[in-house]
């Protein structure tokens, strides 16, 4: 029973990491960019819900709109932010070394965090949206949060939708081709800006989705809220197999499961160091399968 309930907890946390990993993996596949600012897109989506102000009590802004409009607007804002970052920071660096791009994404992330700190003040902001989703339902002694059910469903839906888009639509095929061999794709006449724009737009949608889940779950905004997510997202993407979207999702669930089971099974005295054990497992996975769980053959590190 305890194990079964823990499994439910693991799936719920895993869905969150899987969504983050999906956004990161998509961009990495195409650009070899480790987009550290992805976490801050999540933060932007969350902060857009409230009125910009440094006062301690948050006042709902977009968060107070009827939900279809709210969802649409937040997704649009985050998508716009993702495209803007791509245009201003990453497009000029497209030919640069991956480390340079990584540092650029870090600079962007640092800027966004400090801009939020500047505009909204340092205290975390509280808000309550989607209250009807934070109900617990019980069946057969098992507890599950309605929100978690939705999260798993949305992860599955987005994975299928993005997968379908990549497989069957013209633009999707471009994106996939680009992530296999970017230069070749360009030589075949596919516009790089279009492909990369599409990837960033999708990553924006994913980030906005996570904004909602995190805000509904925790009821809190803080200027660094995206950082722990993006770290776990990276790890998930790499152990899943860089460039493989399914791998990223599997990696996300795996990291979530390892984390939850460590919490549940470690003895008292070691539980405080839970993440140390989680990362030891990560190192072990990397050593056993350096190319990731689902290795993409064309994505062997360029040598």
């Amino acid at each position: 029973m305890y194990i079964a309930q823990t499994l439910i907890d693991a799936i719920s946390l895993g869905s969150l990491y899987a969504l983050v990993a999906l956004g990161i993996g998509l961009i990495f596949g195409i650009m070899r960019l480790v987009n550290f600012a992805h976490g801050d897109l999540i933060t932007i989506g969350a902060y857009a819900l409230i009125v910009p102000s440094a006062s301690a009590t948050a006042v709902l802004w977009i968060g107070g709109w009827p939900w279809p409009l709210m969802v649409f607007t937040i997704v649009a804002i985050v998508m716009a932010a993702a495209l803007l970052i791509e245009r201003l920071a990453f497009r000029p660096l497209r030919k640069a070394d991956p480390t340079t791009m990584l540092i650029a994404s870090f600079a962007v992330s640092f800027f966004i965090q400090n801009a939020i700190l500047f505009e909204y003040g340092s205290r975390p902001k509280a808000l309550n949206i989607g209250a009807s989703l934070s109900q617990t339902i019980t069946f057969g002694g098992m507890r599950v949060l309605l929100l978690d059910v939705l999260m798993v469903a949305v992860t599955a839906f987005l994975l299928c939708a993005i997968g379908g888009f990549l497989r069957w639509s013209k633009y999707g095929i471009w994106v996939r081709a680009a992530s296999e061999n970017f230069n070749m794709t360009r030589l075949l006449g596919v516009r790089a800006n279009t492909v990369i724009g599409i990837a960033f737009a999708i990553s924006g949608v994913l980030a906005a989705t996570i904004s909602f889940f995190v805000v509904i779950k925790s009821g809190l905004l803080s200027y660094r809220m995206g950082v722990p997510l993006v770290l776990m997202g990276f790890v998930a993407t790499v152990i899943g197999g860089m460039g493989s979207l399914l791998g990223a999702v599997i990696g996300g669930y795996l990291v979530g499961a390892v984390s939850v089971f460590m919490q549940a099974l470690l003895p008292d005295s070691l539980r405080g160091a839970r993440d140390a054990f989680v990362f030891l497992v990560v190192i072990m996975i990397l050593l056993l399968r350096p190319g990731g769980l689902l290795q993409v053959s064309t994505l062997r590190e360029r040598v």
């Binding site: 309930q5 205290r123 975390p124 809190l220 722990p228």
Partner: peptide, 30 residues
Amino acid sequence: PSISAQITRLLALPQQPDVIMLCTYLPGGA
């Protein structure tokens, strides 16, 4: 991002507490 594993452990206790001491701060505390 989630304390569901901690909640599971709490609910699985043989005896339920009549008070819970939370040693934490914001934002994680809220």
